[in-house]
C-alpha cells in the first residue's frame, strides 16, 4: 500500500535485454541497470522506467509490444529469465509484478523466438501467422442477420463452459515461445475445440480443422510432440486436452471428409 506492502524496499536490477534494429539485422544482448524499482510495479512499468531513462540519455528506448496491461489483449510477449511471460504461473508479462524479483537480480529479457514470429525490433515480434491461421477457418461461416433466436439451440452448460475455457485464448504466442519445437498446436487446438464443442460449429468442423492445420504447417511452426511446455506456460490455462481434441478432429476429418486434396 502505496500498494500493499509498506515494508517493500526499492530494488536495483541488472537487465540483459535483446536489442535488434529490425527484422533483417543481427541482434545482441545489452546490459542495463535500473534503480529504485518498487516491488509494486508491474514488469512493464519497470521497462517504462528504463525507457524514460534511455530517452533522457538520448538513446533509443527498447521497443516492446503491450497494450491493455491487464492480461487480456495478448500483446505483451516477453521471454523473461528463460520463461515465456516470466516466472509466475498463469500470468502475462503485463500482470507480472516486480515483487516476484529481489534486489540485485539479473533479469534476461528476450523476444519470442520462432521463425514464424520474426522480430520487428528489439522485443517486438510479428505474430500475424496466428491471424492467417484463424483466417483459414477459425470462424463459423454465417453472415450478419438471419440467425435463429439465441435460445433456439440449448447447449449443455458443461459443454458451453468447456468451449468457453478454450475460447479464452488471448493469442499471445507464449505456447509457441515456450515449446521446444516452436509449435502452435495449443493455439490452433483452442480455436478448433471451441468450435467443435459447440453445435453451431459442427457444420464446418471437418473443413475447419483440415484448413487450419494446413495453414499452421504452411506457416512453418514446429510439430507438437506432447512436451507440455505450452500449457504449463499458457497465461490463461488452455489445457492440453484441446490438443487431443484437435488430433481427434483432424483424424476424423481426414478419414471421413469428401475432400480429396
Amino acid at each position: 500500500m502505496a500498494g500493499s506492502n509498506p515494508n517493500a524496499k526499492p530494488m536495483n536490477l541488472t537487465l540483459k535485454v535483446w536489442r535488434q534494429k529490425n527484422r533483417n539485422s543481427e541482434g545482441k544482448i545489452v546490459d542495463y541497470q535500473v534503480k529504485d524499482i518498487s516491488p509494486d510495479m508491474s514488469f512493464l512499468e519497470m521497462l517504462d522506467v528504463l525507457n524514460e531513462d534511455l530517452l533522457h540519455r538520448g538513446e533509443e528506448p527498447v521497443a516492446f509490444d503491450h497494450d491493455c496491461r491487464e492480461g487480456i489483449c495478448g500483446s505483451c510477449n516477453l521471454f523473461i529469465n528463460g520463461r515465456a511471460h516470466g516466472p509466475e504461473k498463469g500470468t502475462t508479462t503485463c500482470q507480472l509484478h516486480m515483487r516476484k524479483f529481489s534486489d540485485g537480480d539479473t533479469i534476461t529479457i528476450e523476444p519470442w523466438r520462432a521463425n514464424s514470429f520474426p522480430v520487428n525490433k528489439d522485443l517486438s515480434v510479428d505474430r500475424s501467422a496466428f491471424d492467417r491461421i484463424i483466417q483459414a477457418g477459425g470462424y463459423i461461416s454465417i453472415n450478419t442477420g438471419g440467425t435463429p433466436d439465441a435460445n433456439e439451440i440449448p447447449i449443455p452448460k458443461e459443454i458451453s463452459d468447456r468451449a468457453f475455457e478454450a475460447a479464452t485464448c488471448i493469442g499471445c504466442g507464449a505456447c509457441v515461445a515456450a515449446c521446444k519445437n516452436a509449435s502452435a498446436m495449443l493455439f490452433v487446438s483452442a480455436k478448433v475445440s471451441q468450435l467443435a464443442l459447440l453445435p453451431q460449429g459442427h457444420v464446418e468442423r471437418k473443413s475447419r480443422v483440415e484448413n487450419m492445420v494446413a495453414q499452421m504447417d504452411k506457416e512453418g511452426f514446429g510439430a507438437c510432440t506432447n512436451i507440455g511446455s505450452c500449457a504449463a506456460e499458457c497465461p490463461v490455462g488452455i489445457s492440453l486436452e484441446n490438443i487431443a481434441i484437435l488430433n481427434r478432429e483432424f483424424l476424423a476429418a481426414k478419414a471421413t471428409s469428401n475432400n480429396l486434396s
Binding site: K16, F79, G82, R113, N115, A182, G220, F221, A223, I227
Partner: peptide, 25 residues
C-alpha cells in the same frame, strides 16, 4: 528436423526444465 528448423535463433536463457519433463524434450 522440422522442429529444429522452426527456431533458428536459440534463446540466450531458457529454463524449460521449469515447465516440462526432461524425457519429453
Amino acid at each position: 528436423s522440422r522442429n529444429r528448423s522452426a527456431r533458428s535463433v536459440a534463446y540466450v536463457s531458457n529454463h524449460s526444465e521449469q515447465n516440462s519433463r526432461w524425457q519429453s524434450r
